[in-house]
């Protein structure tokens, strides 16, 4: 069930362009809300798959960016959904908690490259102020130019999703909530 603003489009009512995004047994609240505007769904889902999905950058690194961004934006849908994805990507429960601001970030992430990256995420997504000039310079010690571009786009795209999901009050799927409950992450 989606939030109060928008009812999810049920599978039997899925528009033609939305049908490939409906799987047997249901679909995500993101898809069933975007299905109201199929031409937007048609380009948004491949965009999300390209930017947030498997790429040249390790899944663990990408989940650091997504979960940290979502925690800074206080998007419960994305925090919950990506707490589960982060576990699948090899992050520990303690690391997930730290990214969510529930435990010390410094202790959970001692490696310099990951600390730099999290600092960059906080600079890009942690405030509505302009990103300070030179904030990402140190990133280049650990990440190539294409990687900096990809990680920054990932952070910015996550901000977009955070605002969309929060505004429409999309709920995480029952399967995600069940998983998080079992891990003590609800």
């Amino acid at each position: 069930m989606a939030g109060v603003l928008v009812t999810p489009v049920e599978p039997a009512q899925a528009p033609l362009l939305a049908r490939p995004h409906y799987r047997e047994g249901g679909t995500s609240p993101l898809v069933s809300s975007l299905a109201h505007v199929p031409e937007a769904l048609e380009v948004t889902m491949p965009f999300i798959a390209t930017v947030l999905g498997p790429s040249a950058i390790a899944a663990r690194t990408k989940e650091l960016v997504i979960l940290r961004t979502s925690a800074r934006l206080e998007c419960s849908y994305c925090v919950q959904t990506h707490s589960s994805v982060a576990l699948d990507s090899g992050l520990s429960v303690a690391e997930v908690r730290a990214l969510r601001g529930e435990e010390s970030l410094e202790e959970a992430f001692p490696a310099e490259d990951e600390r730099m990256l999290l600092g960059w995420v906080d600079a890009v997504a942690g405030t509505v102020d302009p990103v300070p000039a030179g904030a990402g310079v140190e990133l280049r010690e650990h990440f190539s130019e294409p990687e900096v571009v990809e990680l920054t786009l990932l952070c910015a795209a996550t901000v977009m999703l955070n605002r969309y999901c929060t505004a429409l009050e999309l709920p995480a799927s029952p399967a995600t909530l069940q998983r998080l409950a079992a891990e003590g992450l609800l």
Binding site: Q13, P15, L16, L17, H36
Partner: peptide
Amino acid sequence: DTDLLVTRTTSPLAVPAGALVRAL
């Protein structure tokens, strides 16, 4: 009913026309 909805965009007409060709 939205099961046969192509696009919410109707102008320019090329948008839904192109989407209909892609879909069916």
